[in-house]
Design a protein around this nucleic acid. Structure first.
Lengths: 209, 209
DNA sequence: GTCTATAGGCAGATAGAC
DNA sequence: GTCTATCTGCCTATAGAC
């Protein structure tokens, strides 16, 4: 009888997996088709069959990343109504990447922004816009529920959170210390607490699988 | 009589000026000796005379940058005793770089951290450490003076500020909108205000020359 | 779909004349 | 100090066999 083959994603997905990791760790300008090919045990020429050029690979990379990120946000929405828990889970998405020495893909691309092809640039901006929109809604809800307190607009506060978390990844990574990121994220989010004092333990920034 | 020559920095300094701008805008991995040589109207070989390799050039770059940054912090200390004004001036240092589409040099290098030679990595970490130390002192003083209010430790709060400003540069730059950075920086710093409400106008984040 | 082979360019770097 | 000339290696990318 037919035994199920060992689960093995199709080649384009495996290429994206490897390339994604390389970009998040080393940057778009510091990885090559040769790197990806070596890790997969195939040739550079095969990569060009699936993704004609580095620009197209980059576009596919960010498109998939943004889609997954959107799904993660939707899952957070489905898991809790608590604005606090949503913010902690949001920060946990960043912590998860950092736990493998990865930057946020779009944070990395933002650093390299001036060197990127136009389609990738546009996708980076769209990613930040979407994050902002989601956070803005969470913040508005949290304020309505008296779970959060902040004086700036929800939009400005959303931008502060994105900047704070992206920056915390950027700065923490050289220290090779996830705890440092978590502490900074917690300090940042704690400034939005409706009650003074630290977050309850259940709302601490955790890594998400 | 001897007329003063047109002021023209010596070659190593001019090389560093050009390379610094290129790294801040494009990144360490996305600029070449050819780029610098072209901008200066000299050859690549001449660059190698002054800086044997890219690694040495990078070290010289960050050493000079860190020294200048330290001088800027000392100047801030000499200009005002007000912790609020110091924080605003500190944020202004970042805004100044961003006004020419530049990232903080060390923020850019932090993104590329995993690809950098060891000496440059160490210098990046030292840069952040020094910033943290300076901010920590300002924050302690501001709390003592009742000019600032924050619940986390001065050290954690310093890290939050560095992360927030580095991240705000990173995220704002793709939008090509300095006002966006200033607004985020102001939101971040406003959360440290001893009195609720917005900063007085004189303490808004300004660009520093 | 994956391979071998190779093109064409640019990277960092060096030797040696001036 | 700056140049010309050159080296070696890696890069992205393509042609064409299997």
């Amino acid at each position: 009888m037919a035994r199920p083959q060992q689960q093995k994603p199709d080649t384009p997905q495996r290429i994206l997996d490897v390339a994604e990791q390389l970009v998040q760790v080393r940057g778009f300008n510091a990885f090559s088709y040769a790197d990806v090919a070596a890790q997969l045990g195939i040739t550079k020429a095969s990569l060009h069959y699936h993704f004609p050029g580095k620009a197209e690979l980059g576009q596919a990379l960010i498109a998939r990343y943004a889609q997954r990120f959107g799904q993660a946000l939707a899952q957070i929405d489905s898991e809790t109504e608590d604005a606090w828990a949503k913010l902690a889970a949001y920060a946990g998405l960043y912590a998860g990447a950092l736990s493998s020495q990865r930057m946020c893909l779009c944070g990395m691309l933002a650093a390299e922004y001036e060197t990127l092809p136009k389609p990738i640039r546009d996708a980076v901006v769209t990613f930040f816009d979407d994050n902002e929109t989601w956070l803005e809604r969470v913040l508005d809800q949290g304020r309505t529920d008296d779970a959060l307190r902040f004086e700036a607009s929800a939009r400005e506060t959303a931008r502060m959170i994105i900047s704070g978390l992206e920056g915390a990844m950027l700065v923490s990574r050289p220290y090779g210390d996830i705890a440092r990121f978590r502490a900074t994220a917690e300090t940042l989010l704690a400034s939005l607490a409706a009650t003074d004092g630290r977050l309850p333990a259940r709302n601490r920034v955790k890594r998400r699988s």
